[in-house]
Amino acid sequence: MSSQDTPKTPGATAPGRPRRDTSRRREALNGLGLLSPALIVMLSMLALPVGALVVMSFWTQSGFTLDTSFTLDNYRRLFSTSERATEWMGMTFHLGYPVPAILMIKSLAMSLMATVAVVLLAYPMAYFLAFRVKRNKAAWIIILTIPFWTSYLLRVFSWKVVLGYNGAINSGLMSLGLIDAPLEFLLYNPAAVVITLSHAWVAFVVLPIYVSLEKIDRSMLEAASDLGDSKFKRFRRIVLPLSMPGTITAALMVFIPTVGDYVTPQLVGGTGGTMIGSLVQQLFTKQNNAPMGAAVSLVMMLIIAALVLTFLTLIGYWKMRARSAR
């Protein structure tokens, strides 16, 4: 990576003007030098493994033998059509291998629901923290930071305990005499997954939304009121648009990883609540078909990326961010 941005002024090297700006190049080299350990980590542990995953997705596995000759078979199989129709949730799939497609759609839908729930839950909290809390703000922030850092596995595990057949809700309701038999619909279904995901990720978005609200210049709000806006109008016309980029970024930080989540469906999803992450895990372990697993995870990432980019373009995210940066 060489620095090409140093302007080459004509005559800069001519006699009488002995200086050439080497300082910027030196600075760029020093900067990249300091970054190099991190870049090496990223290259060797992110770029190369993903590259390996790509290569692997063009291989095939049959039984215990891995065939390393290049083929598009895995992808072909993922997108192959079939006469046989598979029904799922009122949708008909004419696919030869419908499981990944169904799980993908299901994962996207569940993840989207969880993301919307998370943002709706977190926004008022962030608003409260930014505009209402005057004293002990640091304490509030710490209280909201702790769940962010507690083990994800434990947060999911706790819902298994709460919603389980012998769990806290069922036994609580039974001991209160409100129900006679445990409610079975609490655990092991998509709703349990969405609830658990919402809870597990809500702590991640309060702080980013809070930061984007906190950055809003208070005098701007006073100006809006001064110009006749009611509190609600002012919220809709000033606060909401200015905090939108931060909120969207936070929402994506939830949406993208949850589509591929593995722990939650595994612990609270049961058979009905499986998601695409579970399939990837199974392909790599039980089904012993790592090449197909690689293909599924790559297609999943591409679909997520395409959806996110389309979404951001549709809402004019970059323009929005440039505007509120001012």
Binding site: P49, L53, G260, Y262, G277, Q281, M300, M301
Partner: peptide, 22 residues
Amino acid sequence: LMLPLVVPSIVLAVALLVIILK
């Protein structure tokens, strides 16, 4: 540098698994 924050960990995990083992 911030990419690992958004990539689902299962993708990171299997990608690392593949390069390490295969």
